[in-house]
């Protein structure tokens, strides 16, 4: 009993009080660009980038759906033009919305009225890892832990697709998981929607050129929310979902 009390006292209150204003120190989130101009022929950032197409020059822009936030571009840039801020509001409701350029100040998720109306106060999600490396999976779990406590908004992960309103996909969708993913989606009752988390799920990310993927599922079902990252940050996920729900 005494030992339990000691743990309880040491535990105190652990939740992040403001998930919209918390500061994850050291986090590499939304890219920012210094006002220096790039020399005409400089492509150093593109050459350093591990995912082709994630960064383009003239004018400089980045696709957060492909970006793995590895910092290789920023470390290579001779002008110190690129850096990553601690801003984790990097989700978007469209693929086009993930492309950022020098004018970017922040990303917005537009509320989806239909989803807001039905699931605004209670949203049950089912996660399917389809080739995910356990990075995004651990962070999705962390979104529900005592720190980030997604449950306070009525959002939680459930054990069965039958109980779920939304399907959260992580991983690039390996060929061997494609069928199981489809079955899980079919098993969910209508109305339902899909969220793609991590560069892998959004575009294939580092694995987009692999011949062991089968991404046809995403050609048929368009996700309503994209949460970039490698791995995603729980705050990025929670803020994205709250945006979708108009909260």
């Amino acid at each position: 009993m005494l030992k339990t009390l000691r743990v309880k006292i040491s535990q105190g209150k652990q939740f992040v009080p403001d998930v919209k204003g918390a500061l994850p120190r050291g986090f590499r989130g939304l890219p920012q660009f210094s006002p220096t101009t790039c020399p005409n022929t400089c492509n150093v950032c593109m050459e350093a980038c591990p995912v082709s197409g994630a960064i383009a020059t003239g004018p400089l822009r980045m696709d957060l759906g492909l970006c793995v936030f590895c910092n290789d571009c920023a470390a290579a840039c001779p002008q110190k033009k690129i850096s990553f801020s601690e801003n984790y509001k990097i989700s978007s409701d469209s693929l086009e919305g993930l492309i950022v350029d020098e004018k970017i100040t922040g990303l917005q998720v537009r509320a989806n009225d239909a989803i807001k109306k039905i699931f605004g106060r209670s949203l049950k999600l089912r996660s399917v890892s389809a080739g995910g490396c356990n990075g995004c999976e651990l962070e999705l779990n962390a979104a529900g832990n005592v720190n980030f406590d997604m449950g306070r908004f009525g959002i939680e992960f459930v054990a069965s697709p039958r109980h779920a309103d939304g399907l959260v996909i992580s991983g690039p969708i390996s060929e061997n998981m494609a069928e199981a993913l489809e079955l899980a989606y079919e098993g969910m009752p209508d109305p339902k929607f899909v969220i793609a988390v991590g560069a892998c799920a959004i575009t294939g990310g580092l694995y987009k050129d692999s011949d062991a993927l089968d991404r046809r599922f995403l050609e048929q079902i368009r996700p309503v929310l994209y949460v970039p990252g490698c791995a995603i940050h729980p705050l990025a996920f929670i803020n994205g979902v709250l945006g979708l729900l108009g909260r």
């Binding site: 350093a48 591990p50 995912v51 793995v68 590895c70 290789d72 890892s129 080739g131 995910g132 991983g171 690039p172 390996s174 060929e175 061997n176 998981m177 199981a180 580092l206 694995y207 050129d209 692999s210 011949d211 062991a212 993927l213 490698c230």
Partner: peptide, 22 residues
């Protein structure tokens, strides 16, 4: 086998000094 992403073949396609993110 469900998670097979053919990592080893992708490693061979990249430049050897830049494989860390993968």
């Amino acid at each position: 086998g469900y998670q097979h992403r053919h990592v080893e073949s992708l490693l061979l396609r990249g430049e050897m000094s830049k494989l860390a993110p993968l």
